[in-house]
Design a protein around this nucleic acid. Structure first.
Length: 107
DNA sequence: CGGCTGACTGCGA
DNA sequence: TTCGCAGCCAGCC
């Protein structure tokens, strides 16, 4: 099957995938980009999409970078709220980073 | 229309 | 895994 062309644009696709991330799981910007266009070249655009959005229905706190770091936490109300959310969902943190080995989810 | 920035990634050491 | 460098793409001014 080809990529989802039903969506209006790349941003819509990002929101759609992010909102489907199961509780207790996390994914990376690159994985989302790959799930949409087939490669991680637009990984930065994925982050931009979550940056402009203010919809609380989108669990953007479950999206981290390839190292499992909460690089986007600085854009939240507080730089610690992102980790608090993940911990409350059962995500394990190792040295201040998400345990991708255990909680990584791919679309 | 042109240039800069960014919630990134991949590669090599 | 961590550090540094370069590439890619879309949105914004």
């Amino acid at each position: 099957m080809e990529e989802n062309k039903n969506l209006k644009n790349f941003f819509e696709a990002v929101y759609d995938i992010v909102s489907k991330i199961p509780k207790g799981k996390v994914t990376t910007y690159g994985n989302i980009s790959k799930a949409i266009v087939g490669n991680a070249s637009k990984s930065r655009t994925v982050g931009n999409a979550l940056h402009i959005v203010t919809d609380k229905n989108i669990p953007c706190h479950r999206v981290v970078n390839r190292n499992g770091e909460l690089s986007g936490s600085i854009h939240f109300d507080t730089p610690t709220i992102m980790r608090e959310f993940l911990e409350s969902e059962g995500i394990e943190f190792i040295k201040g980073k998400v345990n991708l080995k255990k909680h990584l989810w791919i679309p």
